[in-house]
Simulated assay, not measured.
Amino acid sequence: MGIPHDLPPALKPGADVSRVASFAVDYAFILGNGTRTPKNSMISNWKEDDIPKSLFMISTGMEDYYNFTKTYPDADASAQQAYVISVINRLKYNLELLYSSRSSKFVVHNVALLGCLPIVRQEFNTGYECYEKFNGLAKKHNARLGPMLNKLAKAKSGFQFTLFDFYNVLLRRTQRNMNYRFSFTNISYCGIGSHNAHGCGLPNVHSKLCEYQRYYLYFDACDDTEKAQESFAHLLSGADPNVLQPMNIRQLITYPVNDDISEFWKEPVEEREFIVRPWH
């Protein structure tokens, strides 16, 4: 697709962002006081027709639900649902702001398998089990995300999107780790603690540098390893509808600007476990 190998940070002085830029930030929130990355300083580097042709990849929400659960550990189903609706509404508002600036192509990740992250297992002392309250919030969010994107695509002329089912991509690798050649999916490669989920990168914290990193799904508290990221990139460029819909990234990039999409997100068919029994 002609994308440079090294993505320049969006705010790096003198960075050439005419082709591609990384807006990645730590602790990005939908609600609350998370880090915000201004784009006004970049627009002068873009040609007038760059924005409608650009692909905006959005992955956010984890920090909102992480902080909500830590702040309100006893929140009932009604409070959880109200919070999810607030997050979805704010995300919708932010997408509408981007659309109003002539952005039209969006790749949106749903919220990941939060309850199975090493940092969550470690901080909530779940041992080798996932923290299902977190996963429940992620499911509530994800159930509303696809319909919200469909509504935007039907209401906003030329609004084009695809939705990456990051939750179930991680779930498959967690439940059937050896199918994907991951030996460790519940602990991190780098850090300290019961699940190696704290302090990666600090001077007094050592990663397992002598171990083979590609055995691990998670590099640190909540970030995936390079091997995992490579597999996700392949899924984004050409996955089937159970992973990415209504189209893959290659199709979205080449979809004519200003055209309405002809297909929309649909509720995925629930996977079933098939048990293979020997013949008698």
Results as ranks from 00 to 15, higher is better:
Tyr218Ala: 03
Ile43Cys: 09
Leu137Val: 02
Arg214Ser: 11
Gly115Asn: 13
His195Arg: 12
Asn110Gln: 03
Tyr83Gly: 07
Phe134Leu: 04
Phe23Lys: 09
Cys116Arg: 09
Asn168Leu: 00
Val243Thr: 07
Lys53Cys: 05
Gly127Gln: 12
Leu137Tyr: 00
Phe164Ala: 05
Ser207Gly: 15
Val20Ser: 14
Asp240Arg: 10
Asp240Pro: 05
Leu113Val: 04
Thr71Glu: 13
Ser44Tyr: 01
His195Ile: 06
Lys70His: 07
Ser18Leu: 14
Cys200Lys: 02
Asn94Trp: 12
Ala15Gly: 13
Asn179Pro: 04
Val87Arg: 01
Pro13Gln: 11
Val84Arg: 00
Leu114Thr: 00
Phe219Gln: 05
Asp224Glu: 10
Val25Met: 11
Ala79Gly: 10
Tyr83Gln: 03
Gly238Lys: 02
Leu137Asn: 02
Ala15Pro: 03
Gly14Tyr: 08
Ser262Glu: 13
Gln122Ala: 01
Arg173Thr: 05
Glu48Gly: 08
Tyr27Lys: 15
Thr162Lys: 04
Ala28Asp: 06
Met148Lys: 02
Ile85Phe: 08
Val276Arg: 03
Asp64Thr: 00
Leu137Arg: 05
Asn168Ser: 10
Ser78Gly: 10
Phe264Asp: 01
Arg36Glu: 12
Gly158Met: 08
Leu11Cys: 15
Ala24Lys: 09
Thr185Met: 07
Leu145Cys: 04
Lys208Val: 02
Phe184Ala: 07
Gln245Phe: 06
Val111Glu: 03
Leu235Ala: 06
Glu230Tyr: 09
Ile85Asp: 15
Pro246Cys: 06
Glu273His: 11
Met57Gln: 12
His206Asp: 04
Ser86Lys: 15
Phe124Glu: 10
Met62His: 14
Tyr128Cys: 15
Lys151Ala: 12
Leu236Pro: 02
Leu236Tyr: 05
Trp265Ile: 08
Ile43Arg: 13
Lys139Asn: 12
Ile253Lys: 09
Ile275Arg: 12
Asp64Cys: 00
Gly34Glu: 00
Ser101Lys: 14
Pro278His: 10
Ser157Gly: 11
Lys105Ala: 06
His109Asn: 08
Tyr72Arg: 13
Asn67Tyr: 12
His234Cys: 15
Thr225Cys: 00
Val20Tyr: 14
His198Gln: 13
Ser188Asp: 01
